[in-house]
Design a protein around this nucleic acid. Structure first.
Lengths: 342, 342
DNA sequence: GCTTATATTGACACCGGTTACCAAACAGTG
DNA sequence: CACTGTTTGGTAACCGGTGTCAATATAAGC
């Protein structure tokens, strides 16, 4: 059995070729599933590959093919669970392929952000990158990818780019539906906690709120609106403002769950019972939504599925080409919303 | 200025050499900071590199050097924020180096887990990997790395490995101190929610609890103990059990925050006020700790700093060689613990 | 049986860096 | 001035794969 070979060294394509009595090119064909290859030869080579435990060197392949098998995730999302869900989604798409996932958090506020990303892309020469919100809304970033010839797909809550570069969720409609649920419960005075300026997702969710307000002819005005930046703390502040208004709302829609938790906190401090005195509905279905009391009625953003599709679009553009993939959100009814008292 | 060259193609080392009028070997020496090199030459070459915007091809380097610049993070941690903090820590260590971070979540329960990891390591030929808890406690996994010649560093809550492969936190002592805090508040009947079997961190935290119980001569027994698996749901179940005991505890120590939130939930269902009727203390300082009501008194695990050190150990073993790096946890006093009523 | 089309396979250069080894240039000795 | 020793730069081979294109074998056409 077998010649005397170094135990430690990993077998190379040459070892396989020699052992199988074929040229390295033939082995290469086997690896790459070339169709123009005799089945008998293929089997023979595959047997040797298995026996030797040969695994092609990805660096060598990357060099010869002038493309590597790394896909990058560029993000600056404050919600850890969301980021991890995206990573899971991507991983599920590249599982059992030769691709691997490289992560790169960035700081949206840094003036060097674009240069950082550019340097990163130039240095690593990634196959492509996935841009997740909110940084995905940055058009300059997309342009940098374009310029550097790096494939990219943006995950967004609105029509940000052409179909081949986009995976989309319909936050606006999802919020409208959640609002309709509150209206159906009997609420009229529904306040809104908006997200940070410049976030497309925040904008879309606000539009959904306004759609519903207009459609149902609900009261509106500055007393019924507050803004935050997606954090628990700013949600608490927004809750403080809305609940101290002269005419208190019976329900508050917060455009993400962290802020909804902050609103809940503010209500609790005022001795208000949720949902009896105040209904609260959020967005995202963060883990926190199920873990606070009462559990939060919210909207689940199918983030892992979006990420999965985004990754598939990146590594196999032909497969899912054309129109943007649109992912509907799901309304999750839990315990934080009920008919208004009286 | 300059010769007529293709605009689009990335410059190679040959372009730099030609433009600078030196050999590619000399350019290579500049890139690799070889000391035996004339300063004037070095500057000349560096100027050309900057002018051309040349960036060495990492795949080619990886091939020639027989090592790449990818470090992997292998994890199966259920806490998203912790995972992200670890990623941040690693990134801060490799920022401005040529290293990049590849993530690889695994499923601890899968029987194929070890094979998956082995395949991953063989295929990607990483420079090294970081193992974060709880998977870092798996000795077989470490052995696989060893066998494959992949560098590794384990992050753990106990002496898991020799110093060069370990970054350590002292959970046991941290829990003991948190318990002493409860004792100092006047609690005697303190129950414990343990973590899942087989988790070293859970074991260490339990030992910390027992240390304190013994030192203060507190009551103990099966009525004062319950186990969970680090999730909110199992924490709720543990809370149900402990709070329905014939003699109810005045405080509950939960060995992580998610479960503490579950306990809080259980208390709330029974109409108990926290912290007046029941004090609760957790561990981890997950984001949830600050976002529930009342905010949770807990222990912060310096996870990002640990990850940073782990990454540094990996990429520059000489620098931080020898003894394991030990990271003390910090006690965070918030609102969920108070003196017992009466 | 001979020519042409088709299926398989191999030889060789090349991807963009690295190292090994050698030659040239320059300096310091006796 | 010849003889070493020390810097420096050049050449060629190599890392482990891939593409191109020619060579061979086999099948088909007349």
């Amino acid at each position: 059995m077998g010649a005397i070979t170094a135990r430690e060294a990993k077998p190379t394509i040459n070892d396989v070729a020699r052992e199988a009595g074929v040229s390295k090119k033939t082995v290469s064909r086997v690896i790459n599933r070339s169709p123009l290859l005799n089945d008998a030869t293929r089997e023979k080579v595959e047997k040797v590959i298995a026996a030797l435990g040969y695994v092609p060197n990805p660096q060598a392949r990357a060099l010869a093919l002038r493309r590597n098998f790394l896909i990058g995730l560029i993000h600056d999302n404050p919600n850890a669970q969301t980021v991890l869900n995206v990573q899971e989604g991507i991983l599920s798409a590249i599982r059992d392929t030769e691709f691997a996932l490289v992560v790169r958090p960035v700081n949206r506020r840094s003036p060097r952000m674009l240069d950082d990303v550019r340097a990163f892309l130039e240095q690593q020469r990634l196959f492509g990158v996935l841009l997740m919100p909110p940084i995905s809304e940055n058009d300059e970033l997309a342009r940098v990818c374009e310029e550097l010839g790096v494939g990219y797909v943006r995950m967004g809550s609105a029509q940000l780019d052409s179909g081949e570069h986009l995976v989309e969720s319909n936050d606006r409609e999802a919020v409208r539906k959640a609002m309709e649920y509150l209206v159906a419960l009997g609420h009229r005075r529904i306040a809104f906690v908006a997200g940070p300026e410049g976030f497309r997702s925040a904008r879309e969710r606000e539009l959904g709120y306004r759609d519903a307000v207009k459609a149902a002819g609900l009261p509106q005005g500055p007393e019924l609106e507050a803004a935050g930046n997606y954090t628990f703390e700013t949600g608490k502040l927004a809750g403080d403002k809305l609940l101290d208004a002269t005419e208190r709302p019976t329900a508050i829609y917060s455009c993400n769950d962290e802020m909804a938790a902050g609103v809940l906190h503010a209500a609790r401090e005022r001795g208000l019972s949720v949902p009896d005195d105040l209904s609260i509905v959020g967005f995202d279905d963060s883990p926190i939504a199920a873990h606070i009391w009462p559990p939060l009625t919210t909207v689940r953003w199918p983030v892992a599925a979006m990420a999965r599709t985004a990754a598939l679009k990146l590594i196999d553009p032909g497969h899912a080409s054309g129109q943007p993939a649109l992912f509907p959100s799901i309304f999750i009814e839990r315990g934080s919303a009920a008919p208004p008292r009286r």
